[in-house]
Amino acid sequence: MDDDSLAGKQPESVAAVLKTFGLLQALGDRSESGISDLSMRLAMPKATVYRFLQTMITLGYVRQEADSERYALTMKVYELGTKALQYPELVDLAKNHMQTLADKTGETVHLGTLIDSEIIYLHKVDSSHALGMYSRIGRRAPLHCTAIGKVLMAWDTPEHRDHVLQGAEFKPFRQTTIADRQAYEQELKQVKAQGFGEDREEFEDHVRCVGVPIFDRLNRPVAGMSISFPIFRYDPARAQEVVALLRDASRDISARLGCTQFPLDEEATSH
């Protein structure tokens, strides 16, 4: 059931909430949208869209571009979103490490966490090279074919992992994508055994990623950090060197989140 049909069966105040969040979601999916576009996408009258947008502008959550008469979200929405993080300090703790990793490798570094049955990028430091990537802060990506998704699932509890994967769509993005849950769970065992996750051109052509988890005080994986390489700059012989850099960064971030026994160290000594 879509928001519009749901709104039609609700009291007016509830319908207004549904319309408000529908507009926020639509603006988040496609920045700088016009009233006609929003009206068509949300099946709402233009006058209603206009009225709601004006209220959201007054509250500071939406801005209007003077030159194009299009609407977009403001940083106030981002500020609100950061407060929803389980660990609001996570990005601040990670960003200097991520910059260092980007400087040392010359490649793109991502920080991501779980949202529903996907990951969401919390922070990104771009490569010093010209490399267009799908990602941006706030964008979602799949669990089954990203290094961050794999490490979040590999170190998760079996119960929570089962719950999350029930909602995951094992879409075959590329020929190399693991598109079967049973095969994916075998991959997670390998990820945990080796101490890092890999994306072997499973999500984007010609891009490989290596990632590790970040842990909280209860040794739960609360985020993942990865480095992405275009295939022509990826050297398998340097993989362990890259993993060591990621592990060192994760160890410090995890410690600052209260983790006292870093799981990746324990697993490294057991192999």
Rank of each mutant, 00 (worst) to 15 (best):
G132K: 12
L90F: 06
M44H: 02
A102K: 03
V151N: 08
M75V: 13
E65A: 14
V210W: 02
K150Q: 08
T55N: 09
H144I: 08
R220Y: 06
M1W: 09
K189C: 03
D67M: 13
K95P: 00
A237Y: 08
A223H: 01
L90W: 07
T58R: 14
Q240E: 15
R256E: 15
K46A: 15
G224I: 03
E12D: 10
E118V: 00
V151K: 06
E187Y: 05
V222W: 04
S13W: 13
D205R: 10
S33E: 07
G138Q: 07
E65N: 15
E107N: 06
E79A: 15
L264K: 09
V212G: 03
L80F: 14
L188S: 06
I148L: 14
H129M: 08
K104W: 07
H144A: 05
F170Y: 12
D116E: 15
K189D: 10
R220N: 07
S33I: 01
V62P: 09
E79K: 13
I119N: 04
A154C: 08
I148F: 07
L131Y: 08
L257R: 11
L53Q: 04
L188A: 06
T157C: 01
T108A: 11
K83R: 15
T269E: 15
G22T: 03
E118C: 02
E65M: 13
F173N: 05
R174L: 14
V125H: 04
V125W: 00
S254G: 11
L114F: 04
E198Q: 10
Y50P: 00
Y61P: 00
W155L: 09
T105M: 03
H110I: 10
Q175A: 10
R251V: 05
A141G: 15
V109T: 07
F173R: 10
L152P: 09
L42Y: 05
I57L: 12
L122Q: 09
G8K: 14
T157G: 02
T82R: 15
D4P: 00
E118S: 10
S254C: 12
L53R: 04
Q182M: 05
E65R: 14
S36I: 08
Y184P: 00
D37V: 09
R208D: 00
L188K: 04
R256M: 12
Y121M: 09
M56Y: 10
I137Q: 14
D162N: 13
A7W: 04
D180F: 01
L90M: 12
M153L: 15
H160P: 01
I178E: 01
S33H: 00
E198P: 00
R140L: 11
K192M: 12
S228Q: 08
T100S: 13
M56V: 02
F173E: 08
L24R: 01
D2S: 13
F215W: 04
P230C: 04
